[in-house]
Design a protein around this nucleic acid. Structure first.
Length: 428
RNA sequence: GCCGGGGUAGCCUAGCGGAUAAGGCGCAGGCCUUGAGAGCCUGUGACCCGAUGAGGGUCGCCUGGGUUCGAAUCCCAGCCCCGGCGCCA
């Protein structure tokens, strides 16, 4: 969430920033909040005054009782006052809840370098690497390739788990693991701390991590328990330091997280859903950073450069876009999407990299201090970025490296992680 | 899952129905000192009103309910931590 004080003290600045998102609904939410907040503060002041009276009265009752005086009249008065306070408390609490729930829906402030635009078509390409692979045959899509190689079983997965699931087999499983190991080693060499988080989270920490609308469309809830399957390791890693104050000397804290991710993918009709592109379950290596406010923009570029280097090492034709104001999500101040070339000639998102500034940290209440024993100075900044999502990376590898005979050559950097396998071939 | 013990400010600890949560450590400021240290003094959670002032007020003792004129303190439910028993890959 964004800083309430900023809205109170400088509403025009916030208004102007949100206007750039091309979303009148968000502006309306802001105005709604300003009014609810004004109302709440009035009620809060009145409530405080009533409570003050109660405290005075209580003190008086205690004094008179001690002195052995009759307090009947005062008790009647106190009861009436108490009823009034109860009413006022309920009303104030209702307003507080209301204004917080509105506040949570106000998006993060956008960085000035975010390009203005309406939707994904207005995202601005800032880099492109490589060139489309050339084939002297009609290239196949990844799903067909994997089926022909006998390395997946789609039908049986659908039978037992529904659509959006696959049994991966043999070398394809090794490839999945190899991609993870490659990314892990790459990032550990650069000082990132490897972490495997819990794959489930309670609702409270989860609310700190995501846009509330996501709960319905992406999260799987565990029945009869207050837990949700994680949609990405970003979430448990972000929540790890909930309600804590980090020491400045420990920052930046850089993590490489691995997890399986679970997504319901409700309402994705019309989106590209072929094969491994949009599954209910997939593995991903993630970069996550907690840092000081003045470090986050530099680190945002570092995270981006990390994944671009990996795609180069894998030899995958890709481009990077600066996601425009109309397409960026609620919590990011700036976002890069990396898009990889796919066999139908289109670039599709393979990973994204967001600087959430203090938006996520404020919700999760993660602060920093300047030294031991010193009071909290402010909220940390958080960044999350895909390192490699194995499913989409496998799509790209299968499609880039397919051969006329149906086999697929493995990128050299992955071979050490695959027992030296150089090529995926159909077995007899 | 069952039986004990516990959860108080950045940390450690007291209070266990009568306002303002005691003390220590750490941290910040001041006095003293050529400087540092020691010693002494003051401050050290969130929120609201107020002018980003002076000042005033409310809340805060794991979370949520309840009892009471009044709850850190009593009652109920839940979460977490530490022991012991059971079950288990």
């Amino acid at each position: 969430m964004i800083d309430v004080k900023l809205i109170r003290e400088n509403p025009d600045l916030v208004r102007e920033n949100i206007r750039r998102r091309n979303d009148p609904e968000k502006l309306r939410i802001l105005e709604e909040f300003i009014e609810a907040d004004r109302q709440w503060r009035l009620m809060q002041t009145e409530l405080n005054n009533l409570r003050k009276k109660r405290n005075q009265l209580s003190f008086e009752i205690a004094q008179r009782k001690k002195a052995g005086e009759d307090v009947t009249q005062l008790l009647i008065e106190a009861e009436m006052l108490q009823n009034k306070i109860k009413e006022m408390e309920d009303a104030t609490e209702e307003y507080r809840r209301k204004s917080i729930s509105i506040l949570m829906r106000i998006p993060n402030l956008l960085h000035e370098s975010v390009p203005y635009g309406r939707d994904e078509n207005d995202n601005v390409e800032i880099r492109r690497w490589g060139s489309p692979p050339k084939f002297d045959f009609k290239p196949k899509g990844h799903l067909e390739i994997a089926l022909d190689l006998g390395l997946i079983d789609e039908e049986r997965a659908n039978k037992v788990a529904g659509s959006g699931f696959y049994y991966l087999k043999e070398e394809l499983v090794l490839l999945d693991l190899a991609i993870e190991r490659f990314a892990i080693d790459f990032l550990r060499e650069r000082g990132y701390i490897l972490i495997e988080p819990p794959f489930m989270l309670r609702r409270k920490p989860y609310e700190g991590c995501v846009d509330l609308a996501d709960f319905e469309t992406v999260m799987y809830k565990v029945e009869n328990e207050d837990t949700y399957l994680i949609a990405t390791s970003e979430h448990p890693i972000a929540a790890m330091y909930m309600n804590e104050v980090l020491d400045e000397k420990d920052l930046p804290l850089k993590f490489v997280g691995i997890s399986t991710n679970f997504r319901r993918e409700v309402g994705t009709h019309g989106k590209y859903t072929k094969g491994f592109f949009r599954m209910h379950q997939f593995n991903k290596v993630e970069q996550f950073v907690f840092c000081l406010p003045n470090q986050s923009w530099e680190i945002h570029e570092e995270l981006q450069w990390n994944c671009e280097q990996m795609y180069r090492m894998l030899g995958l034709h890709h481009r990077v876009v600066n996601v425009c104001t109309g397409d960026i999500g609620t919590i990011a101040a700036k976002k890069y999407d990396t898009e990889v070339w796919m066999v139908d000639g289109k670039f599709r998102e393979i990973g994204s990299n967001s600087n959430c500034t203090d938006y996520q940290a404020r919700r999760l209440n993660i602060k920093y201090r300047e030294g031991t024993g010193k009071p909290p100075k402010g909220f940390v900044h958080t960044l999350n970025s895909t390192a490699l999502a194995t499913s989409r990376t496998m799509i790209a590898i299968l499609e880039h490296y397919q051969q006329k005979d149906g086999s697929v050559i493995m990128p050299e950097v992955l071979r050490p992680y695959m027992n030296g396998i150089e090529r995926l071939e159909r077995k007899k």
